[in-house]
Design a protein around this nucleic acid. Structure first.
Lengths: 135, 135
DNA sequence: GATTAATAAGACAATAAAGATCCTAAAAAG
DNA sequence: CTTTTTAGGATCTTTATTGTCTTATTAATC
């Protein structure tokens, strides 16, 4: 239950690899995929999304590749996960008012909301930098 | 991310319905499904599992149906969720030592473990009784 | 004991989501 | 203008989710 997808797992691995490289350097997707043991084409798709979300920057052409869009201490685990998996949401009924058949009296609602808040909290307080250092 | 399945949602609804009925009474799956707005055949399957896991008792034949296997204050939200969805597990690598390519140095591991513990904690401290009363 | 009313068990099916791959376009560098 | 690299889009396969249906069982009642 509540499992992370491979997509998020690869996103985290890739971001960790970038975080460990010298600042200002750009790294090709092939190297990242190889070193972090992720399927290259799939990782490329994921990095496209991370780029759209402003977490990384991409450079085309010779000498191109990817780099973090900002210092690793300014990037959180939560930001990475939400970028590729969407908002942290234990139950759909939290999202869409019309989705819960038992509103406004649904008694489980407050529990989901609490779980959501705590999960967000844990993932937001972990920076990519702290992760990269622990590697 | 981290979303509950319909299966768990229906399981919780069904258990809530049982918790609200007089003790010693057994209720047919048709009534539960109708009142809690769940597909009957699907709910029946789910209740089969809840029975296997010892959360409810089933009675066949005329006057049969389902009832809680123990008082609602002895049943937790966590027990219901884990019964139908399996163990709470933010990342597969927590489960299977061979599943994480970066053990034992994977730096994200402690975060998943913490998230797992906190999630379990939240779901375990909520009893079915407290939920049923809040309804 | 036959009938009836309920769940149990298992097979099956449809839909959605996850996990990719591949091809062509665009951009930047040499 | 050729090469190298990512971008974007289409497509495809596999797995999980969300069910349904049919045939046992089991138990109560007539």
């Amino acid at each position: 239950m509540m499992e992370l997808t491979r997509k998020a797992e690869y996103a985290i691995r890739g971001m960790l690899y970038l975080a460990r490289t010298e600042e200002g350097q750009s790294i090709m997707i092939g190297e990242i995929a190889r070193e972090m043991q992720a399927p290259q084409a799939f990782l490329a798709k994921i990095f496209q999304v991370l780029g759209d979300k402003g977490l990384i920057r991409s450079y085309k052409g010779q000498g191109g590749g990817f780099a973090l869009a900002r210092p690793a201490q300014m990037i959180t685990l939560g930001q990475i996960v939400e970028a590729v998996e969407g908002p942290i949401m234990p139950n759909t009924c939290l999202m869409d008012d019309s989705a819960c058949a038992f509103k406004p009296t649904c008694p489980v609602h407050p529990v989901w909301r609490r779980l959501q808040a705590v999960t967000k909290g844990i993932l937001e307080e972990v920076s990519l930098k702290s992760l990269a250092q622990g590697m």
